[in-house]
């Protein structure tokens, strides 16, 4: 068949790209970042580079997606999850360094709309005067699970379920609302913290279990200078300041 030839060329190209990129990785670490933490992670990586010269190469996705990939030997050295269960499981499975797990942030759930005045509080959910409500996949993404829990606590879950649209991760859930395709959606506070135009409701903490976001040093980063440096930098005061700026709570550092 005539597409065999281009396929061969593509494979050759991919092989060449792999060889050249592995050389460039000498001084960098691959970090898997839960999508809600995208913006702070970028700032932290920039500050990290300015201070140490190391490069933090960031990948963004849902926590569930990364968990699956890491269990299949993905080349990540540090994992910033949006929950504590998955990092814990990775330690148990021997894929993350024992005792490395710590909580880098506690996330806040927000009901958000691009339209001013649309989101007024829990009444907005009870009235249900919207066609589509965006959430992220509750099984793969902790913010999705928190959104479901909050709606269940408010006893509006069953009525609202037919209006759900699901993003693969919180970035996509946010994008559905941002493009106006869904009028409202549950997003992370960090995503809308600088938004002045829309309307929002900070979901009260008593409606959902705290979103405890844990980081772990993965086995692949155990002996990697850049990865270890990034992991320590994440605990430091510069990172804490950035994380708090985006609306997360940072638990007091535990004496370890």
């Amino acid at each position: 068949m005539k597409f065999i030839m281009p396929l061969k060329l593509a494979l050759l190209g991919a092989a060449v790209a792999c060889i050249t990129s592995s050389q460039a990785l000498a001084d960098s670490a691959n970090i898997a970042v839960a999508a809600n933490f995208t913006e702070p992670a970028k700032e932290i990586a920039a500050a990290f580079k300015a201070k140490t010269g190391h490069e933090a190469v960031l990948s963004f996705g849902s926590s569930g997606q990364f968990f699956t990939q890491i269990s299949q030997d993905a080349p990540f050295q540090v994992f910033l999850s949006a929950d504590s269960a998955r990092p814990k499981k990775l330690v148990e499975d021997g894929l993350a360094v024992k005792d490395s797990r710590f909580t880098y942030a506690v996330g806040k759930l927000v009901l958000w709309s691009k339209e001013p005045g649309l989101v007024k509080g829990e009444q907005t959910l009870k009235d249900g005067k919207f066609a589509k409500l965006s959430i992220c996949n509750p099984v793969a993404a902790p913010y999705g699970a928190a959104a479901v829990e909050a709606m269940q606590t408010l006893r509006v879950y069953d009525e609202l379920k037919p209006k759900f649209v699901e993003g693969a991760n919180i970035s996509q859930a946010f994008q559905f609302v941002q493009t106006g395709n869904a009028e409202i959606g549950f997003v992370a506070l960090s995503q809308v913290i600088n938004d002045k135009d829309g309307s929002r409701w900070m979901v009260p903490q008593n409606l959902y279990s705290p979103i405890t976001q844990d980081a772990v040093l993965l086995k692949k980063g155990e002996n990697d200078e850049a990865a270890k440096a990034f992991f320590e930098f994440l605990k430091g005061p510069e990172s804490r300041a950035i994380i708090e700026k985006f609306g997360y709570e940072v638990p007091p550092a535990k004496a370890s």
């Binding site: 699956t68 793969a140 699901e166």
Partner: peptide
């Protein structure tokens, strides 16, 4: 479909997206 579907069972959750979903959620 992943970009415009919203993963709605019975409406936009087609096979390829369902497989993706199953893999992502282990």
């Amino acid at each position: 479909v992943l970009m415009i579907g919203g993963n709605i069972p019975g409406t936009t959750k087609v096979l390829s997206v369902a497989i993706y979903d199953y893999v992502e959620t282990s």
